[in-house]
Design a protein around this nucleic acid. Structure first.
Lengths: 344, 344
DNA sequence: GTAGTATCTGCATACGTATGCGCATACGTA
DNA sequence: TACGTATGCGCATACGTATGCAGATACTAC
């Protein structure tokens, strides 16, 4: 090209100003939207900028505007296919509204509280935390500093932090209803990670509804929201004499593990065993599984999260909000079609 | 707490200095590793910082050091389970060496060239591009600005950009050998996205080896590296009268789609049909599929990428490098065990 | 003709931190 | 005691941009 071979020094707004014959302020204004610049000045600046290959330095800009346009996202569980999907959509949507994503990966059992100060040092405009929770002290710390925090798919009942989540209690009730309506009686619940709000709520909804419908006993196996834990829970339970007829499994990826184990044991689904999961990950619809599940309304949850996020960036001190969105039953072939309900 | 209720103004190193009775420089030195500070001064500073809740502002720091400790990662294909895994490991490893990740999501057919200027504006120390390629002009632009770029799992033959990739040609040869050794003769190749280096190389290796071993004809179906495209390619091919005995499929997620379609059609694997994939994603090892595949050495590829990255951050003008790492054949049950080779 | 308004511009300063430089102090040596 | 060296410190400035303010210009209205 006609390349300026300075090659070394980075080009700044001052260089552009000099070349264009205007002040540095005018260059700055040319690259800020609303600012008043005459068409001629703007043109000279843009030409000079093009010639020098100038791009505004967002670091320097952030320092003075106190806005980075960066959103911190803390993500804990990449092995569950539900979350990469969530991350992708968040990233796309945020990109479209001019925000960038600073990604933090919390190790499975790492305390988020250690990670958050690192996030805050970057002066992010807000933080989204998925599949992990925050202590109330840390939530307070963020509030004090004026950085909004939104938890996605988790919440802490007491804490002063915003959260958007699926209505997992209602989802658990749906699952119980579906299995009972279909005529299954010996049921089981495969738990996800203990003490997570998703697991607690799904189990609570399931249990509530079971009792309301006169059921008092069912089996329970612990798990960790991984494929392997679903596979192993199924191993333990399906070789018993009193093996269950139907299982509500706390998430889809565990359910796939359980279905694979059932297949290995020659147990046919849904005749000898029904399985219902939670999330509706892509693999749930694959013919190999055709998993009946409760779909989380991911798009709406993300919409709500972003809306809340933008609100809180404007008004950080507003009162924390919890939003719950209903899940949707997706019937496939891992639960037999429900009998017509005659009595009751 | 005993909380200072200033609540409004953000606390700076000057505030800490005033409270600690030292200069702002000393505060700065206390929070920079190698700098000389007396133990007493350091203690006073840390106490004051704790009391005020001070955390260094990395934005301001970057402005003057010309280092952000941020690595830009551009990721194009979240739906292929291979990549979330890669992203997770990159994020972890970078975190461990004190770097953060600024994440960019390129839409499937979006031109990366439009996205890169946005990345560069953030003064990232380096850029990693996965499952996407860069024009040579953009590569030059990055070089000119002194920002190293490394492509992961893709490369552009002519471009002045670093790349780390699996040796896909060798992988394609492995696949051909495995299928021919096992006695399959009517073969097919299911292609990934055309014009990607992964697809071109895998197909080239496969074709080369086929010809070397006297094969001149095989089938070919186009695809896009998605589950659906594998499913559909299988639909088209498996209902023909001359359907193939064995398929080399350009990646695992497509192979899962093909296996599911074969199952629906009642075609037994590996007796009536063999399938070999590429990547070794987690689902490949699930009993439902038990997919024979060529494993990419992800950990070593990531190690190499990071090593190269750190080198190039120190010396951005060094000559671009291409690194290829061999894949490993993982034999499961989607290809029958190979016959003992008698003649030849 | 003057006053008033609207539009644009440059000056100066601020954002929060890092760091070269010169000085002060402490220590060890002869 | 005098000197050299090493260490710690504060001053001042730099990083690259945004923006309040006042001055300049052009235009309108009276």
């Amino acid at each position: 090209m006609t390349g300026i071979e300075k090659t070394r020094r980075r080009v700044t707004s001052i260089d552009v100003a000099r070349l264009a014959g205007v002040s540095q302020s005018t260059v700055s204004r040319t690259f800020s939207d609303g600012a008043p610049v005459s068409p001629e000045a703007r043109e000279k600046v843009l030409a000079a900028a093009r010639q020098l290959g100038y791009k505004p330095n967002v670091i320097a800009r952030s320092l003075i505007t106190h806005r980075t346009n960066i959103i911190g996202i803390v993500m804990a569980d990449f092995t569950n296919p539900f979350y990469p999907n969530v991350l992708e959509r968040f990233t796309q949507r945020l990109h479209d509204i001019g925000r960038r994503v600073l990604l933090f990966n919390a190790a499975p059992d790492q305390d988020i509280d250690d990670m958050l100060p690192l996030v805050l040092q970057h002066q992010v405009d807000a933080v989204i935390i998925t599949s992990a929770t925050l202590s109330s002290e840390m939530a307070d710390e963020c509030a004090r500093q004026g950085t909004p925090v939104i938890m996605f798919n988790r919440y802490v009942p007491g804490a002063k932090a915003n959260a958007v989540s699926c209505d997992n209690v209602a989802g658990g009730r749906l699952a119980a209803d579906l299995l009972l309506d279909a005529g299954y009686r010996r049921l089981a619940y495969f738990a996800g990670k203990e003490h997570t709000s998703t697991n607690v709520d799904r189990e609570q909804g399931f249990s509530e509804r079971m009792r309301e419908r006169g059921q008092t006993e069912w089996l329970r196996e612990p798990g960790t929201y991984t494929y392997e834990s679903g596979y192993e829970a199924a191993s333990r339970l399906l070789e018993r004499d009193d093996r269950p007829e139907a299982i509500f499994i706390a998430n889809d990826i565990m359910a796939l593990g359980a279905l694979d184990r059932a297949r290995e044991l020659g147990i046919t689904v849904p005749d000898e065993l029904a399985v219902i999961g939670f999330d509706d990950i892509p693999a749930a619809s694959w013919p190999a599984y055709s998993l009946t599940t409760i779909r989380q309304p991911v798009n709406r949850m993300i919409d709500e999260t972003l809306e809340l996020l933008l609100e809180r960036i404007e008004a950080p001190q507003a009162k924390p909000v919890l939003k719950f969105m209903p899940g949707e039953l997706i019937e496939r072939n891992s639960v037999r079609v429900r009998e017509r309900v005659i009595d009751q």
